[in-house]
């Protein structure tokens, strides 16, 4: 019991503390691919440090919703981080929420982000919120469909059970899982405001989605939001790894496998981050009205993957 609580705390802290590092790695890879020197993988930590030491500025008409929203977003992401198995499947907390509740947690964080963006009443905030909701309303059903495919294979919607079932089976070629993996990559790009749908580095009013929502935030609130979106990226990477590349994740109570699992996880994240940077460098941002088509394709792939299980 003590050991599983320790495992739980360890994994949650691992994601929360190392999430900015993954973001820094992705940014560094992008800088390298663009022939720039880059700010180093530790830059997100420096930004967070700077923001936490500033004084917060709030708009006069900001309600308490605006002030509490960053804490809710951060808490949602930490909660998700404690459900997704990264190193070991020994997570007592994971019993509290299955994959459907997981999607719900993401939705809750997004809802508060959108509400807070509209709370101030600036044009950019509400525009960003509306665009975010447009993307989210299409990404969410696709994400659910994607999660159903591994859930049907493992006969369970609990993430730890799915990982146990998928990681410790003999090699079977599942076309469904391949379809679901591609669809998941597309949804993850859209949900994390990465390039084909949104550009995380832009402040151009015509194109920004996520950045438009958080323009009014400063200091510790902004730091929490930035940190939360870094954790979100790590969470999505962790879910992708858990569902589609689960080999190496230690099973419950198997403490000897943990160092190896940690090493495998770091290699996977390094490769995944470099892959994301490569994808972002190679592709151009879509027009916002093309985003529904992009996510429609993801939904199509997910549904096809699920139907293919019947064969």
């Amino acid at each position: 019991m003590i050991s599983s609580i320790f495992s739980q705390l360890f994994q949650t802290l691992l994601i929360v503390v190392l999430a900015p590092l993954l973001l820094g790695w992705v940014n560094q890879c992008r800088a390298w691919l663009q022939n720039k020197r880059g700010a180093g993988v530790l830059q997100p930590y420096r930004v967070l440090h700077k923001l936490f030491h500033k004084d917060a500025v709030l708009a006069d008409n900001a309600s308490s919703l605006f002030r509490t929203a960053p804490y809710i977003q951060f808490a949602c992401m930490v909660l998700v981080a404690s459900i997704v198995p990264m190193v070991a499947t020994d997570l007592p907390f994971a019993a509290a929420a299955d994959v459907i509740a997981l999607v719900g947690l993401f939705a809750l964080a997004r809802l508060f982000a959108a509400l807070a963006a509209m709370d101030i009443g600036t044009a950019f905030g509400s525009m960003g919120a509306r665009r975010e909701m447009l993307v989210a309303s299409l990404a969410e059903p696709a994400l659910l469909m994607i999660l159903f495919t591994p859930a049907l294979i493992a006969h369970s919607t609990s993430l730890t059970t799915i990982v146990e079932a998928l990681a410790h089976r003999e090699f079977v070629l599942y076309p469904s899982l391949a379809f679901a993996a591609v669809a998941f990559a597309m949804v993850a790009l859209a949900e994390n405001a990465r390039i084909p749908v949104d550009n995380p580095a832009t402040h151009l009013e015509l194109t920004m989605i996520h950045e438009a929502m958080i323009l009014e935030y400063s200091a510790r609130h902004l730091a929490l939001i930035e940190w939360a979106s870094a954790i979100k990226l790590s969470n999505y990477s962790a879910i992708g790894i858990a569902l589609f590349l689960p080999w190496g994740i230690a099973s419950a109570g198997d403490w000897n496998a943990v160092p190896l699992a940690l090493a495998v996880l770091f290699v996977k994240l390094l490769l995944g981050g470099a892959g994301l940077a490569l994808l972002e460098t190679l592709s151009a941002k879509l027009r916002i009205f093309r985003a529904p088509e992009f996510l429609g394709t993801a939904f199509l792939l997910a549904v096809l993957g699920m139907l293919m299980l019947e064969l």
Binding site: V172, A178, L304, L311
Partner: peptide
Amino acid sequence: TFTGQLINFLAALLLLIAFAMLSQ
């Protein structure tokens, strides 16, 4: 069984191409 899985996988690719043609 492996060739069976391979056939299923190729069949899935065919279906994907059919959809790609539909959207092209």
